[in-house]
Design a protein around this nucleic acid. Sequence first.
DNA 1: TTTGACCCTGACGTAACGTGAGGGTCTACT
DNA 2: AGTAGACCCTCACGTTACGTCAGGGTCAAA
Lengths: 253, 253
Amino acid sequence: MSLSVGQVAGVSGVSVRTLHHYDEIGLLSPGERSPAGYRLYSEKDLERLERVLFYKELGFPLEDIVTILSDPTAGTADHLRRQHKLLTRRVGRLQAMVASLEYEMEAQQMGISLTPEERIEIFGDFLDKGYAEEAEERWGGTEPWKESQRKAASYSKADWLQIKQEGAEVERRFVEAMNAGLPADGPEAMDLAEEHRGQITKWFYECSYEIHRGLAQMYVDDPRFKARYDGIAPGLAEYSRDAFAANAARHGK
Amino acid sequence: MSLSVGQVAGVSGVSVRTLHHYDEIGLLSPGERSPAGYRLYSEKDLERLERVLFYKELGFPLEDIVTILSDPTAGTADHLRRQHKLLTRRVGRLQAMVASLEYEMEAQQMGISLTPEERIEIFGDFLDKGYAEEAEERWGGTEPWKESQRKAASYSKADWLQIKQEGAEVERRFVEAMNAGLPADGPEAMDLAEEHRGQITKWFYECSYEIHRGLAQMYVDDPRFKARYDGIAPGLAEYSRDAFAANAARHGK
DNA sequence: TTTGACCCTGACGTAACGTGAGGGTCTACT
DNA sequence: AGTAGACCCTCACGTTACGTCAGGGTCAAA
């Protein structure tokens, strides 16, 4: 009726040592021991192991799994829904990776190789995996960064192209304004800044004026961005930084 | 043009310490250092980091990633296809988990709770994840176990139901034979054994006579199987073991 | 009763970082 | 020019989740 360590290891795919370890740290202690001291796992224990492996697969530390499973809601329909949410999110991220790979394969076939920047941009979004899920499980997280993550994960290739195009459009008008000699703290530049902020809010996350000001600073500080903007037009990084800042000031912050 | 550790950490989502570590073990050493000794990452380095994170996500040890990336085929179309294969396989497994979760949710809503055995059966297939991929990458693996893995991963719920039904059918006839007093090494029992072996080959993997004999032994040794068979009819586990063995002997092995 | 497959409990090893400690570097502001 | 604060460096020890023996019982089959 009950299984030995080796048998559990066999059906579950984990090692015997792992089961010993889980016993040691109190994550999964078999309900019974044979007279000789052999660990005997019951069906209940297997059920628990299943849940343990589930959360482990999602990257939770064992210690946290202990607390998650000690939650009385474990096993309820609600709990199942949460598991489902975590899993589908994960699948979504991996599918985004698949999509980007396919995109790259396509591009390579046509001899057009993406700039590393392009790829990192797309790639970066799902790379910082891992703990977004935990935060969600714990606090139901709603910070801007995670909001961005979620939205970005749901975008199609078409969306990305549109995002890129809209971004390029505003950039172009920034260059025009700058070349026309319009001041960075003038109304035209500030309106463009506001439009840029609106785009971010629309596509990624609620972009406050503080955040927008921070972004502007980054355009100057981060050599990557700096290089990119200066490649479009020398001085553009600083110009837009000043415009963003002026726009933020105009809106009282 | 080139990024500092902190900047790379920012865009890629890994920690600064991780980058230091990758440098230490020679997995990713930045091409340049500033006069002050600061690590400077080029576009090429970022590209490599991207690949590193890709394989890391799939669970490869860092040491192996070194050798994978040192392979001159890295970055070619062929390499991309291999990456794509690994990824989609992974996605498939996770989707199977999703499906089984949905199945459980559905069942719970209808008040029918699955037996833990049922769940483990379905669950077990994708649990021993991890190294199937590595084996594939290294040896293009074709052993029975992995063949089984692959096939099992592709089955729909309908398939599983049919598998279950066919299995139950043979079981029923085994019970009949046993109850009719037919010897386990008689032609009827051996034919049933052969049919059982055929089913395994059809649904899971090329089941040789040795393997089949091993399975039979397991039916007796593994308390889970033993309990299950004895629950259907006392002595069934031993009866089928003997029949499998006789059938194997009949076929010259 | 002996052999081989399993099980036990330590206990040390390892991979992939986390986390300071102690000390330069760089840019910004005063 | 000086200094605060944000980064960077190199040790170096700590941590998580096990892997891997060592030394020694257990148990079913031959």
